[in-house]
């Protein structure tokens, strides 16, 4: 996008402008490609989806049909399975993100103090991140298998109970959580580790001189300083967990029964198995709405940080 002729940009805001474009136009030009793509490929499908929520839309019977008012919303809101899937998603997200954050930060501290074999440790830690859930999930299914899996074999050798990881409806969701923890804790750990290593040295040295306890340093210095980066990771992980699909699809397909059926998996089943695009779109629109409301709260502090810094200088 070299649309802006370079010669025209010789002057800008710091030195008073001669000819050329203003900062405002330059900045708009910079975001134009991103905006264009987002507008076309986010808004257009969204408008289509929104339109379908007011119509009859059984795709397997052919085309999108007549307008039916708010019927789809009534049906979706009265659908137990929809709320059930929402509840499963909530449980999954809270537990998975919570544990990933705790474990990730703990691992970061563990590695931060280590002096030996740092590079290789970090490299190995990245491994799960570099793989696809659609593929490694398959091998987790193999590990979890009660007849052939390594996991229960080891537990059996140790004389421990051998759970039916993916077949017991009371623990299947937690087995999926464990997989997600395996794949994404390294992400949290690596970013937290980077944050730890970037902390300024001076306040810590001052605290040490003052004889502050380790705990006090941790709660008054380390965590407050790490907060912004941890918050960013938290938001990212939350968004991904709420939209969880691949891991469920490959590990349990929502089963046993509907024990692990998350919102997106139920969406998939409604939209791509039953082809009720009207219900699926309605759920998606509602889902997006809830996410946006949550995002306004979650993102506002982050955005404020961005805009404050952008206004600096």
């Amino acid at each position: 996008m070299s649309a802006a002729p370079e010669s025209a940009g010789l002057a800008g805001s710091p030195p008073p402008g001669k000819s050329g474009m203003s900062d405002r136009w330059f900045s708009i030009l910079l975001i134009a490609p991103a905006m264009l793509i987002t507008l076309i490929f986010a808004i257009l499908p969204l408008i289509q989806a929104l339109d379908v929520t007011f119509r009859m839309g059984d795709l397997s019977r052919g085309k999108i049909g007549d307008y039916v008012g708010l019927t789809n919303y009534r049906i979706v809101f009265a659908d137990n399975q929809f709320w059930q899937a929402g509840w499963v998603t909530l449980k999954f997200t809270v537990v998975a993100v919570g544990l990933e954050m705790i474990l990730g930060v703990a691992i970061a501290f563990l590695l931060h103090g280590a002096t030996f074999a740092k590079g290789i440790t970090r490299s190995l830690l990245i491994l799960p991140l570099a793989t696809s859930a659609a593929v490694t999930g398959l091998f987790w299914r193999y590990l979890y298998d009660t007849q052939f899996g390594v996991l229960n074999w080891v537990l059996g050798l140790l004389g421990l109970p051998e759970p039916n990881w993916l077949g017991d409806y009371t623990i299947a969701l937690w087995s999926v959580v464990l997989f997600d923890i395996w794949q994404w804790t390294p992400f949290v750990a690596l970013i937290a580790l980077a944050g730890l290593q970037a902390l300024p040295k001076e306040p810590f040295e001052a605290a040490e001189l003052d004889g502050a306890s380790k705990w006090r340093v941790l709660t008054t210095l380390t965590f407050p300083l790490l907060k912004p980066v941890l918050f960013l990771v938290l938001v990212l992980r939350t968004i991904d967990c709420v939209r969880l699909y691949d891991a469920v699809a490959v590990l349990t397909r929502g089963g046993p029964g509907t024990a692990t059926e998350t919102m997106t998996f139920y969406l998939y089943r409604t939209g791509l198995k039953l082809f009720r695009m009207d219900y699926a779109s309605t759920m998606a629109v509602f889902f997006l709405y809830v996410m946006l409301v949550a995002a306004v709260f979650a993102l506002t502090p982050l955005l404020k940080q961005f805009t404050d810094r952008a206004k600096e200088a």
Partner: peptide, 20 residues
């Protein structure tokens, strides 16, 4: 038939797993 066939394992399996 196709939609029924692709959905019916869900309650059946839920019963098999003891969920319902």
């Amino acid at each position: 038939g196709a939609k029924i066939y692709n959905t019916m394992q869900i309650p059946l399996q839920a019963a098999a797993a003891g969920q319902i």
